[in-house]
Design a protein around this nucleic acid. Sequence first.
RNA 1: GGAGGAGUGGCCGAGUGGUUUAAGGCGGCGGUCUUGAAAACCGCUGUACCGGGAACGGUACCGGGGGUUCGAAUCCCUCCUCCUCCGCCA
Length: 422
Amino acid sequence: MLPRDFLRENAPRLLAEYPERYADTGLEDYVRLDRERRDAVTALEEKRRRRNTLTAGKGKPSPEALEEMKALKEEIRALETKAEEADGQLAAVETGIPNVPDSTVPRGRDETANRVERTWGAPRDFGFVPQAHWDLGPALGILDFERGAKIAGARFTVLRGAAARLSRALIQFCLDIHVEEQGYVEILPPFLANADSLFGTGQLPKFGADLFQTTNGYYLIPTAEVPVTNLHRDEVLADADMPRLYTAYTPCFRSEAGAAGRDTRGMIRQHQFDKVEVVMLVRPETSAAALETLTDQNEEILRRLGLPYRVVTLCTGDLGFGSTKTYDIEVWLPGMNTYKEISSCSNYGDFQARRASIRFRRAEGEKPEFVHTLNGSGLPIGRTIVAILENYQRPDGSVDVPEALQPYMRGQTRIGRVGSGL
RNA sequence: GGAGGAGUGGCCGAGUGGUUUAAGGCGGCGGUCUUGAAAACCGCUGUACCGGGAACGGUACCGGGGGUUCGAAUCCCUCCUCCUCCGCCA
């Protein structure tokens, strides 16, 4: 959410400067709705002030005063209704207005305008035609798409044997690096969250269709970003507690509304997937540098795993709702012959902090300030397994275990066929 | 799931329909006094929004929401959280 005085000042400028981001967001109506709300509030407060004056004396009011107060009651009620309506209309607009892109973000309407920042590693020369994971996995007996569909439905997968262990190993591998080498505190949060939490991180009210909801009002978290960022919702942190660095493994649940037909094969886009996430709450002046650090820390995991990748900066038209700047890390997938998004590292500025009221106080007696929030995937387990299978495959269809992962696989160096009896 | 109790400012805590403009205390900030400090004494103390160059003025906020009333921290309804007990349970 952006501050009201800022929107009051800048609504026309934002519309003119970033049509690819602000067209049809309701920003066109902001100035008018804000004026209407303030007029309504001012009128209401004037009447309430009068009522308070009449009721301020000791004992029972005079008959005349009583008469006036009875009349005021109706006026106040009408003005309250009007003010609530005006406030509701304004809130509906302002909760759906995206954050302002950082000045270093490239301009453009869609992903074709994203800017490649750097590339690490080189696609391997296999000497044979590499298979896609949706062929490799079932052939090895470690990915079972049919039974995933039977048990739950489309976009669910069963991991078996080495894939299941690989999943567990990757979770531990990522967490260990974040905790032991990069200074994050490990969190195991609830996997369900309430509406306030989802509002705080920006999924609600605009993107509710992407979420799974329980019949009694909970939401399945789409990412650990939600519960972890909301750890400090409605809190004022001490300066000594800044910055806060958290990492968390959670399963993630996404209804993938609107993604019909995209990435339908294999394990790229699932309703349920595991992910290790990192979240930072930092002082505002440090958030730009923190985004670089956070991105590099997540790249480090791919480097350890020996997976070629590149980093792109999302352009203004591709940038997520609450983000000021996002680096996507894209891993090379030889079976699909493309770089595919594996991690998204974003600086939200104070956008989430304002929605969730996460503040800090620089010193005793000073006014609380909003923190800046950042988060990044480090890493999504399913897509990382996909990347390992495709990048480490051998001519016979078996797969080498990346060296860094072997200790987490109890020394296993290669994944072969599990055996018959599937 | 059932029964009972409780939620008031940074913290403790009083307040059961009209000087509550939320008592009192603690903590914090400033001052007087002092060579300095402590003690004592005096003053100040939150958040959001509205009006306004500003100073300042106003409105709202006593767990959330709704209601009754001319008027609600106080009465009613509902939800949430915590505590005690019962039941069930990995």
